[in-house]
């Protein structure tokens, strides 16, 4: 169902970008994790209270839960995880399909006996597996780092569920980029919408935290469906939110592949 030579070429073309983002994600994770100190958590709370509350809310730097996983959920999964992988997906989505079409090299790929569906599906599988691998690495390094710094203090099942949520979130967000990458023949258009919409979601997410009056903005962004705090409190909303994110991703990826298989290509 996928074309392995093409898959391997994707690895070759993109591993440097992937390594950079993996490095950034792991670096920030270890910095945040190393800041955790159950004894000083209250003094940190006091420090945050000294800052303008709007700023703190916008950055989602809230500590709802004094446990290690709660600390990570507040500091790392509330903001940083919405930023860096988002940039990664925006850059990569365009490189999956639109770039090849814009550049013209798609002509050579399609002059091999592989259908458009197979080519696009291969790209989709590569894209998603690169994201899953990124999160998988974060899980492994995260658990190892936490266990070495704070033995036995990390709630591993909850930590893994949060990361599963990250995968679901990015399945749907990357689906947006992939959909536009398949739809447009020019990189600039694919980047404008495939990048613009996820970035708008990110900004809406920030704005919705600023004050009560604009909190309704959270209903306009997909990122609301990923709520690490709700995962920790084992809220009933978690499973439906995961399913919704998964379905949105599935629909966008499928639609993208379908459009790519049907459209006129200027090759």
């Amino acid at each position: 169902m996928i074309n392995f030579p093409l898959f391997r070429v994707n690895i070759k073309f993109n591993y440097i970008i992937w390594l950079i983002f993996a490095g950034i994600l792991l670096m920030y994770f270890s910095i945040i994790a190393s800041l955790y100190n159950p004894a000083t958590i209250n003094s940190m709370k006091a420090m945050l209270e000294a800052l303008p509350p709007q700023l703190v809310d916008a950055m989602k730097f809230t500590i709802p839960d004094p446990t290690l996983v709660g600390f990570l959920a507040g500091y790392y999964y509330g903001f940083l995880i919405l930023l860096f992988p988002l940039v990664y997906t925006v850059i990569m989505a365009d490189r999956m399909i639109a770039k090849f079409v814009d550049q013209g090299s798609m002509a050579f790929l399609l002059s091999t006996p592989n259908s458009r569906v197979k080519i696009a599906f291969t790209q989709a599988v590569f894209f998603m597996s690169s994201i899953i691998l990124l999160v998988f690495l974060l899980i492994v390094v995260g658990i190892l780092a936490c266990e070495s710094m704070y033995p036995g203090m990390l709630d591993i099942p909850v930590f893994m569920t949060i990361n599963l949520g990250v995968i679901m979130l990015y399945f749907s967000l990357s689906g947006i980029g992939f959909f536009f990458s398949c739809s447009f023949n020019q990189s600039k258009h694919s980047l404008a919408l495939g990048g613009g919409i996820p970035v708008a979601f990110f900004l809406l997410n920030l704005l919705s935290g600023v004050s009560e009056e604009v909190s309704g903005l959270k209903y306009l962004t997909l990122t609301t469906l990923f709520d690490p705090i709700a995962i920790i409190s084992k809220s009933d909303s978690v499973v439906p939110a995961f399913i919704a994110l998964f379905m949105i991703g599935l629909i966008l990826y499928s639609l993208g592949i379908y459009i790519f298989s049907k459209k006129d290509l200027p090759l």
Partner: peptide
């Protein structure tokens, strides 16, 4: 199209290869 490519060779008019 995919089936046809098994026995067709194609040279595009404007040749662009994959970068790098």
């Amino acid at each position: 199209a995919a089936e046809i490519q098994k026995f067709v060779g194609y040279l595009p008019g404007e040749i662009e290869f994959l970068d790098g």
